[in-house]
Each structure stands twice: as C-alpha cells, then as structure tokens.
Amino acid sequence: MTTKTIFSGFGGQGVLSMGFTLANAAMLEGKYVTYLPSYGVEVRGGTANCTVVVSDEEIASPVASEPEFVVAMNQPSFARFQSILQSGGLLCVNASLVNTASARSDIEVLAIPTSELAEKLGTIKVANMIMLGALIKASSIISFDAMIKNLAELLGEGRSKLIKLNREALETGFNYVKE
C-alpha cells in the first residue's frame, strides 16, 4: 500500500517537523518513504508544506498530486489543498483556526481543536504533535505503538527532556479521534 500525505500550514506551526517525524517513524518501521519539502522564498509566516509518501514498495514519485491525506493547520492551506485531495480522502484540519464550512462533500473532514488541546498540556508548541497523533489514529499509515517506542530517536539527540511532552501530545491527538 502507498499513502501520500500533504502537511500544510503557516511557517512556524511545525508543519515540516510533523512530516519529517512521520517519515522518520515510517523509515524506522522498515517502510519505503520519501519526504519532499516545498522550498519557496519565505521562511516564517508564509505558507509551508511538505509531502510524505509511505509505501510497502519502491516509491515512484515523491510528489502527491492526489493525496489520500491532507493536514491543514490554517485557512489558506485548507483552501489550497482540499481541492487536490482524492475523492474519499481524509482532511485533518486544525479546528482552532480553520472554518470548514466550505469543505467538499466527497471527502471526510476530521476537525481537531489543536490549540485548545495543546493549552491543556501547557504549550501551544505541541499542537503539531497532537495533530500527528490524530492523523495516525485516523489513517493507520504507521503503527502508533512503534512510533511511541522510537520517540527518543525520532526527536533526536539532546531532546530527551521533550520525550514526555511529545508523547503526551501524540497520545492526546490519538485518543481524541474515536474509533
């Protein structure tokens, strides 16, 4: 199986790190994976997006013209990427910032109030990890348990203090999504 996910939002919302974490987790699970950042001129405050392809076989293209999953962390990303989502695809939106009234009728929308959930954990910075937990629950792209197990490696050296917080954030998102 091959799944393509586009992560999008404002620069600074941790959009690229969301994609990188998923790609890295998929690699550690032994899957084929590609991660393609959009590389534009703006670094902060502009729109950022990246594409992650996870597969059981060799990946032909790291580009997703019709992704199965889209994560939209802000309104402009919602507007831009909902149109290219596959029919029947899943759109994970940051309900704290995005109005989903104009969503297409042939897709599923999963609204996660990431800001509110993040504030309960004490920092808005983990909104992206909450969203990632929710995406993994709803998509089953990778194994959540394996990801939690590899969390230290995923966060990288020198971030061991952050393991607990990130784990809580991922679990918050994961548990927010009902079966």
């Binding site: 990188f20 690699m27 084929y32 994976v33 590609t34 991660y35 393609l36 950042p37 590389y39 790291p62």
Partner: peptide
C-alpha cells in the same frame, strides 16, 4: 535536480 536535492529518503 531540485527534487533529488531537496527530497529526503532513507
């Protein structure tokens, strides 16, 4: 090319 340079893979 730009893609080969920018994309990440294992």
């Amino acid at each position: 090319d730009g893609m080969l340079g920018q994309m990440m893979e294992p």
